[in-house]
Design a binder for these strands. Structure first.
Lengths: 199, 199
DNA sequence: CGCACCATGTAAGAAGTTACATGATTCA
DNA sequence: TGAATCATGTAACTTCTTACATGGTGCG
């Protein structure tokens, strides 16, 4: 479970409540990780039991007490250990590729439609990353932790690089399908070579 | 749950047992989808209850009876409906990016090590795709279903494009870290611009 | 007046992985 | 002799999502 270590990572920035951790997730690592409050609260509790974080209860009236979690030395060590540990590459798990894989089951016209839509969806995500998210991250860097600037930018770049690769692939796939539209045989025979050349 | 539809997709090729479906997964869609037998067997049963597949029991001696599942017309329709339905883009969920995001917690040297290792892992996967997997897929195309050739190749290309983007990103990140090694301030100030230019 | 924000959680369910259970055949 | 292949499944567990439960404050 990487969530435990993701939470430790967040708490290296500063002590936070579960609610604040969720906000941190939403405003910064959103593009490659996410977690719900219902998962965060119990996980913080288990981190406390492991001695990796401590809890300070700040009483409030009219709403639940704030429970501020802070990382311990042991927690910092555990996090650094985890960072250095081998990490198998994340594998893709993409239902859209299943649709393309069994593309023979629908007319080519329909495939072109879903490819175009999928491309647009990825474009929207990039547009969001480049405006709202980039601004949020830059704000976080300025306000909270200038040291993190490089790394936060790098991860944003990786997420965008993935989306750009996806968009390019949609374009090339659509082009190939349009070309092979009339003569299916030609399509098949030259598909692979054509893809390589268009890259 | 996309697994149900993935199974329907597989069964559009030909009737199969759960065991054979697993082999199909392992030899063709492995690079963007996977499933365990313990998940496949119950899912096939539920597909049968939905009327999307039928089961034919072939008795055997010395080993469990073969249960061959075939897709029905209703199943084909359901699959086509699913293919055409809107598909939100798969989001990244990559523990490695968490490590980079909180890169301030370990020395730069250690980050260079894990970036190099991660790059190598992705290179290995591509090498496997381009040899073993490509051969398996090509075999499947020749033996079973030439119609699928274009689509099977396309999905392989997408998976490889993702890995190549990842590798490029590792390279650029390592370069930036090496440059900013001595003077952290310079590193931070120019990181973003430098990344853009190196792309 | 209704919605968003703050702040905590529990419970139920879906999806996926790992371990357990059985047992004959074939190949090195 | 021991591993891989064929062939079925169940049970336990982890991870993640969605729904439920409470309730005050402030804004438009």
């Amino acid at each position: 479970m990487s969530l435990k270590h993701a939470l430790l990572g967040v708490l290296t920035c500063k002590p936070m409540t579960g609610y604040e951790v969720k906000q941190f997730f939403d405003s910064t690592v959103q593009h490659f990780w996410n977690a719900e409050l219902s998962q965060i609260y119990p996980t913080l509790k288990s981190l406390e039991e492991s001695g990796w974080v401590t809890k300070e209860v700040q009483p409030q009236d009219g709403r639940p007490d704030r429970k501020v979690y802070a990382i311990t030395d042991a927690g910092r060590e555990e996090f650094a250990r985890w960072v250095r540990a081998p990490q198998p590459p994340a594998d893709l798990r993409d239902p859209f590729l299943i649709k393309v894989f069994f593309g023979t089951e629908v007319p080519v016209e329909d495939l072109l439609v879903i490819l175009r839509r999928q491309k647009e969806e990825h474009q929207k995500v990039i547009a969001f990353s480049e405006t709202v998210l980039r601004e949020k991250i830059q704000h976080g860097i300025r306000e909270r932790s200038p040291r993190h600037g490089l790394f936060w930018t790098l991860t944003l770049e990786m997420a965008n690089a993935y989306r750009r690769a996806y968009i390019d692939w949609c374009d090339r796939s659509m082009r190939l399908l349009e070309e092979g539209f009339i003569d299916g045989d030609v399509m098949r025979a030259t598909a692979e070579r054509a893809f390589m050349e268009s890259a």
